[in-house]
Design a protein around this nucleic acid. Structure first.
Ligand code: MN
Ligand code: MN
Ligand code: MN
Ligand code: MN
Lengths: 234, 234
DNA sequence: CTATTAATTTAGACTGGTCAAAACCAGGTA
DNA sequence: TACCTGGTTTTGACCAGTCTAAATTAATAG
């Protein structure tokens, strides 16, 4: 029943909400979906009429429980499709997003279940983003950014890399920094450049804009350093 | 660039054309797509404006070469997706159609190629319908119906079963009559009931409406008995 | 408390797809 | 030839989604 557009709005609002919290403004949504503010105003009004979000004029919107469920269903389909493309059709992590963005609105529940089963209930998509299970319980463990989690000399495992900016993603994949790989922070400069050593011994200089998009878990022995939130594109 | 609706119209017109030949009437299209005649008139006008078909008012339409190419692309995607669902996700031939009907409009060329590759360039979908290769060269070998091809006592291989009527399809699949299986015509009654023996020795009585939807190749030794055309749903 | 301004909403318009109701054609019938 | 009648087109309407331009609001600066 919901259209592609409706699902894309819900997904976008969900993402913004979990990164920056409600209320989500018209312009934030417009920015995320590349639509004009006027268009967004009109759409959030219909979403509000359908009970998917609550809205306060000139303030912003917030998903209702129903809206959040609907959003999570889309996110689940999106990530499952991404995982599927990477696993079964040999897509690169960089190629997976656009295809999934179209397909996410058109696969049946049946399809979703079967994909999930064939992949043996994967926990994360190729970017490391957690895949909500069928009951939509959502851990959504974001992890902490490189600099937040790891002091120079410390080592950790990449949990997730943001898929938001294709160029950043490309950069990271080229550097061999992908989910599950091990990295050690060698150095952090005052202007934000982070030098890391990957498991194969190579060193890479990551500009701040890139380093901030890498989320890691510290290599055991010390508890979770938290904070450094950011919800991903999917 | 073409929308879902445009693609569905082209596919429908292509199918009708290859079953009954041009011109294809407004009501035929309306029937096939479950739209009102008024809607169809309006759509064929825009299709005509785009050069995808030629139209003579009150007479009907016929695909142009460009329209036929576009239609074949959709058919190709549809059948490839059906094959993929059956092969990789373990769908039954009866379950495959609706999913493919939605997805066919949203998979990229890249996806199509990869699926084709992973399936090792399959010749036919789960209903036996030929899959046009990337160059869209189209054999579209329809095969002959059971009674047309096989006299009682003769044996043949099922080439294709019509996917048009879900109930008929279900009946055939349940009886174990699917593409590549061997059947022998045991008997044909005056009122059209065809009794066949399948390879496992079981006999099945097929009402005329069912038998007419089974296409076979005679078991070697004699050339192709032809005729008995019918284009399928995909 | 007022004036400025940036964000937001409203107003009005357009496209694509659809339908119901009314008008219209074309081929066959009397 | 004049009339039916079934299929077809026309007309006018509507919904979803989008945009531009104009009006409005809220927050901030003076
Ligand atoms: Mn999408
Ligand atoms: Mn992702
Ligand atoms: Mn379709
Ligand atoms: Mn088929």
């Amino acid at each position: 029943m919901p259209t592609d557009a409706v699902e894309d709005y819900l997904k976008a609002i969900y993402r913004i909400e979990s990164r920056a919290g409600p209320p989500v403004s018209t312009s934030q949504i417009a920015e995320a979906l590349d639509k004009t503010p006027a268009t967004v105003t009109s759409m959030v009004e219909t979403l509000s009429d359908r009970g998917l979000l609550s809205r306060e004029k000139y303030k912003g919107v917030e998903l209702t429980p129903a809206g959040e469920v609907a959003a999570l269903e889309v996110v689940r389909r999106h990530r499952l499709i991404e995982a599927f493309l990477a696993e079964q059709l040999d897509y690169e992590p960089t190629e997976v997003h656009d295809e999934a963005d179209a397909l996410e609105h058109h696969v049946s529940e049946e399809f979703t279940r079967r994909v999930e089963r064939v992949l043996d209930y994967p926990a994360a998509d190729p970017h490391g983003d957690p895949i909500p299970p069928a009951d939509l319980s959502t851990p959504e463990d974001a992890g902490a950014t490189l600099v937040a989690a790891l002091a120079p000399g410390e080592r950790g495992t990449v949990a997730r890399i943001s898929d938001r900016d294709p160029d950043v993603l490309e950069f990271l994949v080229d550097a061999g920094i992908t989910p599950e790989t091990t990295v050690e922070v060698v150095d952090v400069t005052s202007f934000g450049l982070v030098t890391v050593r990957t498991s194969d011994g190579d060193e890479h200089g990551l500009p701040e804009a890139v380093a901030d998009r890498v989320y890691v878990r510290r290599a055991a022995e010390s508890g979770a350093a938290s904070d450094g939130q950011e919800a991903s594109d999917a």
